[in-house]
Computed example of a mutant assay.
Amino acid sequence: MLFFLVTILSLQAFVAHGQVENVFSYLQHNGNFTTLVKLLKESGLAGTLATSATPLTIFAPTDAAFAKLPQSVLDQLSTDPQALADTLKFHVTNGIIISPMIQDGTEFTSLSGKNLTAHRYANQKYVIQGVNIESGDKIVLNGVIHTIDSVLMPSDVSISEYLGTHETNFADLYAALVLEGFENALEFGTYTLFAPRDDAFAQILANLPTIAADDTYFKKVLMYHVVPGVWFSAGLTDGMSLPTLAGTNLTISVQGSGVYVKTAQVIEADVPLSNGCLHVIDDVLAPPK
């Protein structure tokens, strides 16, 4: 309640002191959003952010966030007006969203019609679609701006579907899930998967027939990589212990900029999916027998 009061008073102060910065003019004058401003103008969404009579909230990617995108993606957005408009609208919601409203699992409807899912962790870090919110709650005349460090993308596929369509890296893992009849379980529910790539499976290839021959243990190996709930890297802290579907816990360690799950290193983090997220790891995890 206090924050809502502060918000109202801040908006009144803008008007009283002649500060009429709107969402778009703030982005335009800030200097960290030149790519976003350019694309907003190209899409026609700039006018909406400048003149909307109802409050809007934007999760605004910085220039550094856009620089992470492959050039081919930027080229596609520049040549496909509908894709550009949908992508940018996915970053904007009606109404005022301030940080106390961002809780674990909270969903907001974007202007594109697709939902944005937020997560907040015990360390008080919070993410939207798995993307870190670097700074938030910048209140302007007609809304709120949160600065984010990556471009938001909708998550339309489940964990199982993602593995099945990325056979270049996960053919062995997906085949193992199918073999054990476990792939359907990853269509539903909400999970975090620590996913070994095929080159990780290759490292244990000599022992794989022996492991697979013990069907109960092999299934336990697969379930040992799956944690209930959604744990993006923002919520992973040194020494934390996460329960797995195998019934035993995984210990997380953070060493410098590296994140480890037991002895396996996370080599690609934070793939957002429709029913959770995926982290790519460089080794197959072995649960205690």
Rank of each mutant, 00 (worst) to 15 (best):
Q76C: 11
Q76H: 13
Q76P: 09
L77I: 02
D80I: 12
P81W: 12
L84F: 07
L84P: 01
L84S: 03
L84I: 07
D86L: 14
T87Q: 02
K89L: 02
F90S: 05
F90W: 03
H91C: 07
V92C: 05
T93D: 00
N94L: 07
G95D: 05
G95H: 10
I96K: 07
P100F: 06
M101P: 02
Q103T: 08
D104G: 00
T106Q: 06
T106L: 02
T106F: 05
T106H: 04
E107Y: 13
F108N: 09
T109K: 08
T109H: 02
T109Y: 00
S110V: 03
S110D: 00
G113V: 06
G113C: 10
K114S: 15
T117L: 11
T117P: 06
T117Q: 14
A118L: 12
R120D: 05
Y121W: 05
Q124W: 06
Q124R: 14
Q124K: 13
Q129R: 12
V131P: 09
N132R: 13
K138G: 11
V140G: 02
N142C: 05
G143Y: 04
V144N: 03
H146A: 08
H146P: 10
I148S: 09
I148G: 00
V151Y: 01
M153G: 09
M153A: 11
S155A: 15
V157M: 11
S158R: 11
Y162V: 00
L163K: 00
G164I: 04
D172Q: 15
D172I: 11
D172C: 14
L173N: 06
Y174A: 00
A175V: 02
V178S: 02
G181V: 13
F182C: 01
F182L: 15
E183N: 11
N184F: 10
A185H: 07
F188C: 03
F188G: 08
F188V: 13
G189N: 05
G189T: 03
Y191T: 12
T192Q: 10
T192G: 11
T192C: 10
F194E: 11
F194H: 13
R197W: 01
D198Q: 08
D198I: 08
D198E: 09
D199G: 03
D199Y: 11
D199N: 15
Q203E: 14
